[in-house]
Design a protein around this nucleic acid. Structure first.
Lengths: 185, 185
DNA sequence: ACTCCATTAGACCGTATGGTCCAATGGAGT
DNA sequence: ACTCCATTGGACCATACGGTCTAATGGAGT
């Protein structure tokens, strides 16, 4: 089972670098150097090379975010407060790291115009997030769960982008405030 | 005055390519080939090279979007209908081109972690859009123009990203619907 | 002790990258 | 006709890219 440890290391390292510099901004050698693994190891685990690695890394990082979303909503008693807790959580990790990294999906999506498989991996993650949020929106009594879920994902991505531009969690925190205000109308 | 025509051509060509493939996904040779200009010409107009070109292209494209926003809001009689008209306009150009290109700011931002000047160019464009929208929000009687403006920009960027992932204007059109519904509450 | 094979190690390849440099060009000003 | 200089043309460079290939390694199974 621990045979997968180097594969996982590659996934984690690649995802972090992609979030910092974007798919095309990161070289294979850089990923290898950061993980301390040789080239042969990468091509053993991901025979189709960089693209396959990025595809897997996107799914992996998407799953991590979804787990966070699931955990937050599971503890929420109404939709607006659950929704607000998500940008708040992202803003917290920003404060903790002292740096804003791009959303893993956004960081890969730009290369999606060139590589359909990458685009589909990103699309799949977004779709999966949306389903997850819509499920909880319905459970918490929101009148149009699907629309509310898409709207939340959109605002998350947009605020994340603004935070990236400003290198500051402010946009995410203000989004959280706006979302939770709605709870007390 | 037409001496600038090649400089402008470089700007337009580069901006289009960056939107398709991202900053790091486009090579100098590709920009040059697409514009039919030689390397010397690029380094004459942009002595600091690719980065300076991208910086200028971001400002140029940002200005183009701002002009559209200004024009739409100038014709609007209330904030929600003006706000809704913007994603609608973007969705229209998507339908017309048959392809979703990334927002010019988003396409450059990923490289902004590496190059502070690029990040600042992107930040400046976003800030300028926000000021423009806030001005009209105030004029049209919105109670908190600054917050409304940031929220609109966030949703625009988020919906643009989803549209990019799906290669379909749907997310932008649904955002427009959601924004204009608010008009008739 | 031996085999076997999943995995690692890293040299190597062709190509593309961003950038530099300088000679040629050609239109405007006189 | 001549000069001048803003602009172009493109050869050239070191480096980095993604990818391929084969030999070494080492632990598990017997």
């Amino acid at each position: 089972m621990s045979e997968n440890s180097n594969r996982d290391l590659l996934l984690r390292t690649a995802s972090g670098l992609f979030r910092r510099k974007g798919y095309d901004g990161v070289g294979l050698n850089e990923i290898l150097a950061a993980s301390g693994l040789p080239k042969g190891s990468l091509y053993y685990h991901f025979p189709r090379g960089k693209r396959e690695l990025a595809e897997a890394a996107t799914a992996w990082a998407g799953q991590a975010v979804e787990t966070l979303v699931e955990r937050i909503f599971a503890a929420a008693t109404d939709f607006p407060s659950g929704a607000a807790a998500i940008p708040r959580a992202i803003a917290d990790t920003v404060k903790q790291k002292g740096q804003v990294l791009a959303c893993p999906v956004a960081s890969i999506l730009q290369a999606g115009t060139q590589d359909e498989r990458l685009r589909l991996a990103a699309r799949q993650v977004i779709s999966s997030w949306t389903v997850c949020v819509a499920k909880h929106a319905g459970r918490l009594g929101h009148p149009s769960p699907q629309s509310a879920a898409e709207s939340l994902i959109i605002q998350l991505e947009g605020a994340w982008l603004l935070a990236l531009a400003e290198q500051n969690g402010g946009p995410l925190e203000r989004l959280a405030d706006r979302l939770s205000e709605r709870a007390m109308v």
